[in-house]
Design a protein around this nucleic acid. Sequence first.
DNA 1: ATGGCAGAAGCATTCTGA
Length: 281
Amino acid sequence: MLIATWNVNSIRTRLSQIIDWINQVNPDIICFQETKVMDDNFPIEPFEKLGYSVEVYGQKSYNGVAIISKIKAENVKKGFYGCKDFDQNIGIFLDQKRLISAEINGIKIINVYVPNGSSLVSEKFRYKINWLNCLASFLDEQEKKGQLICLMGDFNVAPSDLDIHDPDKYAGGIMASEIERNALNNVLKERLIDSFRIFEKNKSDWSWWDYRNNSYELNKGWRIDHIYISKELSSKLKSCVIDSSPRENIRPSDHAPVMIDLNLNDINVDFFDIEDDFFEI
DNA sequence: ATGGCAGAAGCATTCTGA
């Protein structure tokens, strides 16, 4: 099962590029961020024609997330819910459409667009840290239910200096600060694993390149888009790749898609083996 | 240190992003 995440920076502007990429790669599930469109104006039909169901949670001009899936998405939820200690002021996090979740194939798919935060002295930075703390609480509740989790999206945090093209230049700044890394680690705790780092212990690959300063041509990027999975799923993980090819398109998104291949077939094989044994008896 | 590039709204320019 191929599961991808992609900050497309406007679903409508990028639509033909996205369809081209789907036709090449044929993912089962894609989580989009920065769709930048209200739900009524989301281009649902092009995805339905390719066999996907579409779940959207958008707003005007900014933010916006969506999940498209070839497998039925159940228990679709928009925004945070059931976050301990955050219930009273959860409204400030629901104004901005940054999270959508669903259960697909028995796995809780959580698609997030974490606030950028602007700079460490900004009010937006406080919002970012509070948002991540609310996400941690949200995951605590999922963990209590025993859910297998796949948490992905644009986190706007480089987890380590390996994930920045020039870590010295950006040390301690936005997307690289200890405060943000600690907040991210508090979301992950010991329960979620960075799919990319299972395969690449020391490699630097980027998922985002600034539009300015010829950053892509100079390969000056960051790895800020991530797919985290429950550690119980790690033995099912076959690959994790960042596909930078769409970044070479004309008028590209500034982000590249990230994709994992999760081998859930052997779960079904085990199931059918038991069935066969049963009938042989 | 600042701006550079891009999208949306909407028609000149501002706001936001990372």
